[in-house]
């Protein structure tokens, strides 16, 4: 176990934001996450990103959509995720990514952690938010990150490291929630 237990909700929220950005675009996340955690984008980052994450064009790519990693019906998964987001007051923007993209799910966790941060002291609220985080991680985000990690050996360094660190970060957060 790491120093994770000592991370504040706000810090975790920032991590989630960085992760979401890193999976959204080739050089994303760099304004939030240190280079010791995620390597700086190489000059070929744009191509490397597609090679890693755009299965419709790349031999070795892995989809970032949960529905590609699940035997569940995609529409049903969309519905479930939209219900999750809606439950916490969120509505999908018209031009948003699809709800099962890992960056959207990370963004949702970013929001829940931020909300946890604002709920300091309200034990009922903290309980609800942590149960939600745990359930969401267990049923959606963490299995997705594990599946993506399985493809990552051939990825360029930045994205290989990203997938590994992302999975570990989610695993550690899950453990904290389990122990909490």
């Amino acid at each position: 176990m790491s120093t994770e237990a000592s991370l504040t909700a706000l810090e975790r929220s920032v991590f989630y934001r960085g992760l979401a950005e890193a999976f959204r675009s080739p050089s994303g996340g760099t304004n939030v996450l240190d280079e010791s955690w995620i390597p700086a984008p190489s000059p070929n980052a744009k191509t490397e990103f597609l090679e890693a994450f755009e299965p419709s064009v790349s031999k070795t790519a892995c989809s970032l959509y949960e529905s590609a990693h699940s035997s569940r019906d995609q529409t049903a998964l969309f519905e479930e995720l939209i219900r999750w987001y809606d439950h916490f007051g969120l509505q999908r923007k018209a031009k948003a990514e699809l709800p099962d993209h890992i960056s959207v799910e990370l963004e949702f966790m970013h929001f829940l952690c931020y909300r946890e941060h604002l709920s300091e002291g309200d034990e009922a609220a903290l309980g609800a938010l942590r149960r939600a985080q745990k359930d969401f991680l267990n049923n959606h985000l963490h299995p997705l990150s594990i599946s993506i990690l399985g493809y990552s050996q051939s990825f360029a360094n930045r994205f290989k490291v990203l997938c590994g660190n992302c999975e570990q970060f989610l695993r550690e957060h899950t453990l904290v929630l389990d122990n909490g």
Binding site: S2, E4, L7, N31, F169, R171
Partner: peptide
């Protein structure tokens, strides 16, 4: 798991503030 990946030092200075 050898070492945690979630130390706050991995966040860029200023990201938190």
């Amino acid at each position: 798991m050898s070492k945690g990946v979630t130390r706050r030092s991995f966040l860029k200075a200023g990201a938190l503030t």
